[in-house]
């Protein structure tokens, strides 16, 4: 199997904090690797090492077979980076931003202009091309950011939490763009805090926690481990929360959890369980104001994999 990028046993410490504690990641050519983890798990540090911005304290990483430390210059010709914070210049216009990147990638000025125009069109920014980026909306800025990482037609693109802070419609826009990238043969490393996002986009998912990979696999495999979907119920009468929890637990065959006040949730392994829960709640006379079937949140994934909630961890 060919990997577009590979990291083996990466370790990175900042003072006394160990950000990465021997992490392994690999992205198959033309696929999306989703790196799922809470804040402070080491996602950004891993991306920064693979993007040649940081040197690992131990372990090695390669992109296209080139070492990210010893052959950093060559690696930089193969990669595109969209950081967690908008990595565009707010004072420059959309065109100026992209032309600058083009020139820094050794495009001739006319080529840099042509490439900028092409990307601005592709990303629906043609009308805003000559306005400073600070006048852009959050979604437009994110699209410009993505466009900037594509100027050099990279083989590998790193997207560090590309949809954090976007509303659902704009998030869907970004998802569409990411899917089209893979269609062009690009390999993507996507970090995210949302299982839903990793499930929607990634071919493989690595779940990381405290700088270690704690689970690895396809979205389907991972969902099998964490129980696939979750049924969530909010009894109309808060006094019946325990009764509702008992119903959920009986059907799912595992204890129900209470992620927020007044709500009980339990992972289930098939759609049939949902119907069963609806029937039993009705039989028991428990009225609910909210009843839903959804993918587990990151917090629930962590609860299943590690036995603790993400919020319990010291940042």
């Amino acid at each position: 199997m060919t990997f577009a990028f590979e990291a083996e046993g990466l370790v990175k410490r900042f003072g006394k904090t160990t950000a990465l504690d021997g992490i392994d990641l690999a992205g198959r050519q033309g696929s999306v690797l989703g790196v799922l983890g809470p804040n402070g798990a080491g996602k950004t540090t891993a991306v920064r090492i693979l993007a040649t911005l940081l040197r690992p304290d131990a372990g090695r990483a390669t992109v296209g077979g080139l070492d990210v430390v010893r052959q950093a210059g060559k690696v930089r010709r193969l990669i595109g980076l969209t950081g967690q914070y908008a990595s565009v210049d707010e004072d420059l216009t959309g065109t100026e931003n992209l032309v600058l990147i083009g020139q820094l990638l050794d495009l001739r000025r006319t080529d840099a202009r042509a490439r900028a125009k092409e990307l601005l069109n592709d990303f629906g920014l043609a009308e805003a091309a000559d306005r400073p980026a600070k006048t852009y909306s959050g979604g437009m800025r994110r699209r410009l950011d993505l466009a900037a990482s594509l100027v050099g037609r990279p083989d590998v693109i790193y997207l560090d939490e590309p949809t954090t802070g976007l509303d659902p419609v704009k998030r869907d826009d970004v998802w569409t763009i990411i899917r089209s990238l893979v269609g062009d043969g690009v390999t993507v490393l996507l970090t995210t805090q949302y299982l839903e996002e990793a499930d929607a986009l990634a071919d493989d998912i690595s779940v990381i926690d405290h700088g270690k990979v704690i689970a690895n696999g396809s979205p389907a495999e991972l969902k099998r481990v964490v129980g696939g979907q979750t049924v969530l119920a909010r009894p109309a009468d808060p006094a019946r929360l325990d009764d509702a929890a008992a119903v959920l637990a009986a059907v799912a065959g595992r204890p129900a959890d209470s992620p927020t006040r007044g709500v009980v949730a339990v992972p289930v392994s098939g759609d049939a369980a949902f119907t069963e829960i609806v029937r039993r709640l009705a039989d028991a006379g428990i009225a609910v104001t909210e009843l839903s079937l959804r993918l587990p949140s990151l917090d629930e994934v962590f609860f299943t994999l590690t036995g603790r909630h993400t919020t319990e961890e010291a940042a």
Binding site: R48, T52, I79, S87, L104, L105
Partner: peptide, 17 residues
């Protein structure tokens, strides 16, 4: 401190540029 410098660092340009 701004994100745009991260992008510069990820580009194949001299560190002094």
């Amino acid at each position: 401190g701004k994100g745009v410098f991260d992008r510069f660092r990820s580009l194949p340009i001299g560190r002094s540029a």
